[in-house]
Design a protein around this nucleic acid. Structure first.
Length: 460
RNA sequence: GGCGAGUUAGCCAAGUGGUAAGGCAGAGGUCUGCAAAACCUCCACCGCGGGUUCGAGUCCCGCACUCGCCUCCA
């Protein structure tokens, strides 16, 4: 297996990946803030994480994957107050929708989906640990992290802390901070807000602390991979490093991976603020196939480059997926077990191992498919080779997951109709032949006549 | 202003020193009762200007433009 190389934001370089524990990868992905439906820009990052998760698995690693749900946060509080409901009631709808969308896009499930509201105890304990180390201070019931106590602050984002702009977007409830760059660990209770009674006082957690507390709980104080969108590098991940390493004295994360944004056709970042976004359910309502969305987001561009999203690319993705499925049908492969051809499998592995270059991997795959199709055209490809090609397709689909592999035809009526149509064609009765083809089409089966006989496939 | 990423065909994009992968769309052709699919052929002076080199999309310098981050946005 080709050695996996990944771009580490912490070093700014592509590095060979080795997990802390041989054979076992622990990864944490920053999940959604469930104040609204996640848009496809959010899912671009999630599909990148899905690619990473699946590739690690095909490389033989056991993967312990944690994806958190941020279910208490400023926007959630504001919107739930506007609706006059508790935050749990407010977020329930969006949490459910999030999991529906994950299933629609065939995202491999994480092992754990911890929720912030379910880990208040861990967060409080971590803040107390930081307090004991002299890294915090309290102002009017809110607790802040004093970044002056953490010299490495700014290293991940390559920001010089002394040059950070200050004052521009400081929240009104944080005027009491000693240094505007300090960040809130715990926010004092405000009238009407959901709060927890804790040894720190009544209030609610700041945003960053949840990821430190939950990742350490499920993955340990040092773990392998932490991912998210590039916008999380600062301040979110910078703050996570500060509060985690200040508390434990150990390295927090070994490899930081960040996905570039999805942009709209004009090249601008897709965001709710600009209202230039679409949700998965929006696209489904427009009749876009789930597989096309998955394929477009997964293979549209290298994860470190912005992906220019458009309806045209969805159309293209749908055609590409159809071509892959068509090839699976055309192979007419025997069910015998087989291994993928070594050369194409090697090219596929090499491309993905090179910092997840799925564009190149897919390019290799299509080149190979065309060559194979040409051989199928001339006929005489032995069953063993077709089985091997099918094995390659299945291997690639462990990552892509967009192919519906043809199963056996088990409907006696369908088999009888195909045979009747064959006889009708032989007799020149094309009216009956077309009638049967239409009949089967309505049952979701399409017939294709080839010089080797009639093929069938299910229409999706 | 600081830091970073980018600029490759109509569209999406790979390619990090040796005369430009792949997908989509388009044009022509082959096959075919029809349809579908497939196959073949065609379609790029790699943002601009210098430089290094036998040779540059690929390295260096400059310029233009785009985008991201700079306290709670994936």
């Amino acid at each position: 297996m080709t050695a996996l190389r990944l771009h580490n934001t912490a070093s700014g370089r592509v590095e060979e990946f080795t997990p802390l524990e041989p054979g076992h990868v622990r990864m944490y992905t920053c999940g959604p803030t469930v104040h609204d439906y996640s848009h496809i820009g959010n899912f671009r990052t999630i599909l990148f994480e899905d690619l990473l998760h699946r590739l690690l698995e095909t490389q033989g690693y056991k993967v312990t994957h944690v994806r958190n749900l941020t279910d208490v946060e400023d926007r959630i509080i504001r919107k739930s107050q506007e609706q006059g409901v508790d935050i749990d009631v407010y977020t329930a709808e969006y949490i459910e929708a999030f999991f529906e969308d994950l299933a629609t896009l065939r995202v491999r499930p994480a092992g754990v989906y911890p929720r912030a509201t379910g880990h208040i105890t861990e967060m409080v304990a971590l803040i107390q640990r930081l307090a004991a180390g002299g890294h915090t201070y309290e102002v009017e019931g809110s607790h802040y992290f004093r970044i002056a106590t953490f010299p490495k602050y700014g290293a991940l984002a390559r920001l010089d802390p002394t040059k950070l702009k200050t004052g521009a977007r400081v929240d009104v409830d944080e005027y009491g901070k000693d240094d505007p760059r300090d960040f809130a660990l715990w926010k004092a209770r405000k009238p009407g807000e959901h709060f927890w009674d804790t040894p720190l006082g009544a209030g609610r957690p700041g945003w960053h602390i949840e990821c430190s507390a939950m990742s350490m709980r499920y993955l340990g104080e040092t773990f392998d991979i932490h991912t998210g969108g590039v916008d999380l590098i600062f301040p979110h991940h910078e703050d996570e490093i500060a509060q985690s390493e200040a508390a434990t004295g150990k390295p927090f994360v070994r490899y930081w991976l960040h996905a570039a944004h999805l942009t709209d056709a004009t090249g601008e970042k897709m965001s709710k603020r600009l209202k230039n976004f679409a949700t998965v359910r929006d696209l489904l309502a427009e009749g876009v196939a789930p597989r096309a969305i998955r394929y477009a987001l997964l293979t549209g561009a290298h994860y470190r480059k912005p992906l220019h999203f458009s309806s045209e690319m969805l159309v293209g993705a749908d055609s590409s997926v159809r071509r892959l499925n068509e090839f699976a049908v055309r192979l007419q492969a025997p069910a015998d077990p087989a291994d993928p051809p070594a050369d194409i499998r090697q090219r596929w592995d090499d491309a993905l191992a090179d910092n997840l270059n799925i564009e190149e991997a897919v390019g290799e795959l299509f080149t190979w498919i065309r060559t194979f199709n040409t051989r199928l055209e001339t006929g005489g490809v032995p069953p063993a080779e077709r089985a091997s090609a099918m094995a390659m397709l299945r291997y690639a689909d462990q990552i892509l997951d967009v192919i519906d592999f043809p199963g056996a035809l088990d409907d006696a009526e369908v088999i009888r109709l195909i045979e009747e149509r064959r006889a009708a064609r032989a007799a020149g009765d094309f009216a009956r032949s077309d009638e049967i083809r239409e009949l089967l089409r309505q049952r979701g089966i399409q017939l294709d006549d080839t010089k080797d006989g009639t093929r069938w496939k299910r229409i999706t």
